[in-house]
């Protein structure tokens, strides 16, 4: 691809331009080759292989007994009730992530103003983000065990430990327990993101506000919120695709038992335990399609919401027109 272009460029232009072009191509090739090879090798080749798997009835990898069955696995994904039922659990994670965003926004707002011990609070709330998934599995199994940490803490505030539910066993509450762990883990990180966006607001705006005699609420409503609108929106939409593929909390804490098996956990079990690799691969492809749709929707929403973009588009159009005009002029 680069070779042909190079060849084309060689003929009509002057020497100065030519060396520059050649240099450009050198840089492009030098800087792009390795990352691109890595990307294709570790993302697209496996994906293509996985797509191939999804067309087979496959109990074991590389077995001569694997049979090509076309789209049957896809039909299965759509006709079984358990596949899409497990997607319902994503609802818990979506709700949890919205709560997480609301909390993050609340604490970011508080910490944006002067607060005694602010950096200590910030550090404590942020800190869970640094813990690894497997450690979180251990910590929360311990945390939720009957009569252990959570029950004890609740008994301090006067709740009767006997009347508390079993956090991981009771199907009315266990998905919420699991989703809460991810709020615990990521809320602080969200908060720091918001805080950063708020801080990036031009301080003179606040000063102007203060002169106008605006109170804190007004500052929040008219200065901070608009400044972080796009970050919030982005995070809301990201949380939907994240929730659809929720995997880690149930995988490390309950193993998907007692109705906590999310789409990904179910897929994992079908592939590794149930010997239905083709079906699991089809599930993965379907979910990716879903996430793709969500992402496209995100792009659309973001663009509509983002006024900069409209301006940019106008500029682009202008630029295009200009280029066209230049070309014509040259011709």
């Amino acid at each position: 691809m680069p070779g042909t272009t190079l060849g084309k460029q060689k003929k009509p232009f002057g020497q100065w331009l030519r060396t520059r072009k050649v240099q450009q191509w050198l840089v492009i090739i030098a800087f792009m080759t390795i990352p691109l090879i890595l990307l294709v090798t570790f993302s697209y080749v496996p994906f293509a292989k996985m797509f191939e798997f999804s067309l087979y009835k496959m109990k074991r990898y590389d077995s001569k007994n694997n049979k090509f069955i076309g789209l049957e696995n896809y039909l299965d994904v759509f006709s079984r009730d358990d596949c899409f039922n497990s997607l319902k659990l994503a609802g818990y994670y979506i709700v949890a992530s919205f709560i997480q965003l609301a909390m993050a926004l609340y604490f970011a707002t508080i910490l944006c103003f002067k607060v005694r011990g602010g950096s200590l609070f910030k550090g404590l709330i942020f800190f869970p983000y640094l813990i690894s998934g497997i450690a979180i599995g251990f910590i929360f199994k311990f945390f939720y065990t009957r009569g252990f940490v959570f029950d004890t803490v609740l008994s301090w505030i006067g709740l009767n430990p006997e009347s508390l539910p079993y956090w991981l066993k009771d199907t009315r509450i266990n998905n919420a327990s699991l989703a809460a762990t991810s709020v615990w883990r990521y809320m602080g990180q969200n908060m720091v993101l918001f805080l950063g966006a708020m801080m990036s607001v031009d301080p003179t705006l606040y000063e102007a506000c203060a002169i106008d005699g605006a109170n804190s609420w007004a500052k929040f409503r008219y200065i901070m919120l608009p400044s972080i609108k796009s970050v919030i929106l982005l995070n809301m939409i990201l949380s939907i695709s994240g929730s659809l593929s929720a995997f880690e909390p149930p995988y490390v804490i309950t193993g998907g038992t007692f109705g906590t098996s999310t789409y990904f956990v179910m897929m994992n079990s079908l592939a590794h335990e149930k010997g239905k690799i083709g079906l699991a691969a089809a599930m993965a492809v379907v979910l990716m399609g879903l996430i793709f749709i969500v992402t496209i929707a995100q792009q659309v929403i973001m663009k509509v919401a983002d006024e900069d973009w409209r301006e940019e588009r106008r500029n682009k159009k202008l630029a295009k027109a200009r280029k066209k005009a230049e070309k014509e002029a040259r011709a």
Binding site: S43, F47, F53, A271, I277, A281, M288, F292
Partner: peptide, 12 residues
């Protein structure tokens, strides 16, 4: 590529 389900592709 960020949309590809990494865990599902581990075997390949």
């Amino acid at each position: 590529a960020s949309l590809l389900p990494g865990i599902a592709m581990q075997v390949t």
